[in-house]
Amino acid sequence: MTDDTHRSIRGRTARLPLALVALVLLAGTLPALAAGQSDPAISIEAGSVAAGETTAVPVVLTSAPDGLAGYQLELAVSDPGVARFGNASYPDRFGLTTDPVVSSDGGTITLEAADLDGQIEPGATDVTLATVELTGVAGGETQVTVASSQVDADGGAAVEPATTATTVAVTGDATAERVAASETTPQAVESTAGTARTASDAGGAAGGATAARSTTGADGSLPPALVLVAIAGAAALAAGTARRP
């Protein structure tokens, strides 16, 4: 065996452990990457809202490793007396959607949509599923949770996204505002009534003036009938005086 052959074998032997180390490291990295890609979550980006006001809250799927065929979600607020759901809207990328269903007390909302045209491809991130409206009712805090979910990847495989409750803070107190408004209402009614009475009094005075004007002419003179009565009375008085001895 020549010296060149020995050097070639030794070189291949020296490189072999490095290749094994690289394969081991790659084998340890791939499961971590796969786990990160296959661990989607539903994020509800709520914040704060004033009592009596409405805010738009995005509902986001953080990742879709295998794409997204469609979903059905039910969201809930823990205390509808603090905040409640209104309406909701869907992004245009969903080819088929169902009108949002809101419970009578505004405590839950059900959303459903399907990606018919494959707009949401495998590997997509931060996919907005819908935007819901939250209306503040009274000052305080309430939690928004995903009560139930059914998410399907392309091909129909079920996806089980992680869910985390989020807190909505409501500032102000709509009840106090309504009380304040009701306290000012009687004053407004009284003012209106006073105005009506003033108008009525004015109407009565105007009616009296009209009646007075109807007794006299427009120029202040008596009507002809009263003039004749006065003349006849004066004539009778004169005749009686003339007949006295």
Rank of each mutant, 00 (worst) to 15 (best):
A165Q: 07
Q187G: 02
V24Y: 02
G36Y: 09
T62G: 02
S182Y: 10
G155T: 13
A41D: 03
A51Q: 01
P58K: 03
G47V: 08
R197L: 14
E133L: 11
P65W: 01
S8F: 04
V127L: 03
A235N: 07
G11T: 10
Q143K: 13
Q37M: 08
G36E: 12
G81V: 03
V151K: 06
G172W: 01
A130V: 02
R15C: 09
R7Q: 15
S191I: 12
D105F: 01
G36C: 08
A239G: 15
D117L: 09
G47Y: 08
A124I: 09
V146C: 05
D152M: 14
Y90A: 05
G107I: 08
V168N: 05
A19N: 02
G86S: 02
A22H: 06
G118I: 06
E121A: 11
L33G: 12
T97F: 09
V132Q: 00
G11N: 11
D201H: 04
L20G: 12
S89K: 04
G207M: 07
I44Q: 01
R15A: 15
A236I: 08
A225M: 10
E45F: 00
V132Y: 00
A206P: 08
G11K: 09
A69T: 03
V189F: 13
H6E: 08
L134Q: 04
V82T: 04
T185Q: 05
A124L: 12
A225N: 14
A193N: 08
P100G: 12
T184I: 11
T142V: 11
P161A: 06
D4V: 04
T131N: 14
V159I: 11
A50I: 07
V60P: 06
R7N: 15
F94H: 08
E53V: 15
G106C: 01
V227M: 13
D92R: 14
Q150F: 07
G139K: 00
D39S: 11
R15V: 10
V229Y: 09
V189K: 13
T98I: 05
T131I: 13
P31W: 06
I9N: 12
I109Y: 02
V137Q: 01
P122E: 08
G240S: 13
V60K: 07
V132A: 03
P58E: 03
G136T: 08
T164L: 10
S214V: 03
A56H: 04
G52I: 11
S38M: 14
T125V: 13
E177G: 04
G140C: 00
A69F: 03
A76C: 11
S182C: 05
G95W: 13
Y71D: 11
A206Y: 10
T110C: 09
R178E: 14
E121M: 13
R10Y: 09
A41V: 09
V227R: 15
T54Q: 07
A69P: 01
A212Y: 04
V49P: 01
A209D: 10
V49R: 02
Q119F: 02
G107P: 09
D92L: 08
F85V: 00
T142C: 06
T97C: 13
L134M: 07
V24W: 01
G36S: 14
S63D: 02
Y90M: 02
L75H: 00
T98E: 01
